[in-house]
Computed example of a mutant assay.
Amino acid sequence: MLSWALTFLVVALIAAALGFGGIAGTAVGIAKIIFFVAIALFIISALAHAIRGRA
């Protein structure tokens, strides 16, 4: 999922360099959402693993 965020970030940087403001803004917004969802899922997974312990 983090790779999707990086992909949208690269798309946003390329679009910004070429002057496509709307596309760049949308891609940055999507990248931010995906990044924070990935971080939240990582934290939930780490907490679940810490609570469950070793099998």
Results as ranks from 00 to 15, higher is better:
residue 1 M to R: 09
residue 29 G to Y: 03
residue 33 I to F: 11
residue 1 M to P: 06
residue 48 A to S: 12
residue 47 L to P: 03
residue 39 I to V: 15
residue 35 F to Q: 12
residue 31 A to V: 03
residue 24 A to C: 04
residue 5 A to R: 01
residue 20 F to N: 11
residue 23 I to F: 07
residue 26 T to H: 02
residue 43 I to S: 09
residue 42 F to E: 15
residue 54 R to P: 04
residue 34 I to Q: 15
residue 25 G to R: 03
residue 42 F to S: 15
residue 52 R to I: 09
residue 5 A to V: 01
residue 18 L to F: 05
residue 12 A to C: 03
residue 54 R to F: 01
residue 44 I to N: 06
residue 16 A to C: 01
residue 55 A to G: 10
residue 5 A to I: 00
residue 39 I to D: 13
residue 38 A to Y: 10
residue 20 F to T: 06
residue 50 A to G: 06
residue 2 L to A: 10
residue 6 L to M: 09
residue 4 W to M: 07
residue 23 I to W: 00
residue 32 K to T: 15
residue 50 A to Y: 04
residue 50 A to L: 08
residue 37 V to W: 04
residue 3 S to K: 11
residue 26 T to Y: 05
residue 36 F to Q: 10
residue 22 G to E: 09
residue 13 L to M: 07
residue 36 F to L: 14
residue 3 S to N: 11
residue 30 I to V: 15
residue 10 V to T: 11
residue 29 G to F: 03
residue 18 L to G: 11
residue 26 T to W: 04
residue 54 R to G: 07
residue 13 L to F: 01
residue 9 L to K: 13
residue 54 R to Y: 02
residue 39 I to K: 14
residue 10 V to K: 12
residue 3 S to T: 08
residue 45 S to F: 01
residue 20 F to Q: 10
residue 52 R to P: 00
residue 8 F to M: 03
residue 45 S to D: 14
residue 14 I to K: 07
residue 41 L to E: 15
residue 54 R to A: 11
residue 28 V to A: 14
residue 3 S to E: 13
residue 37 V to Q: 14
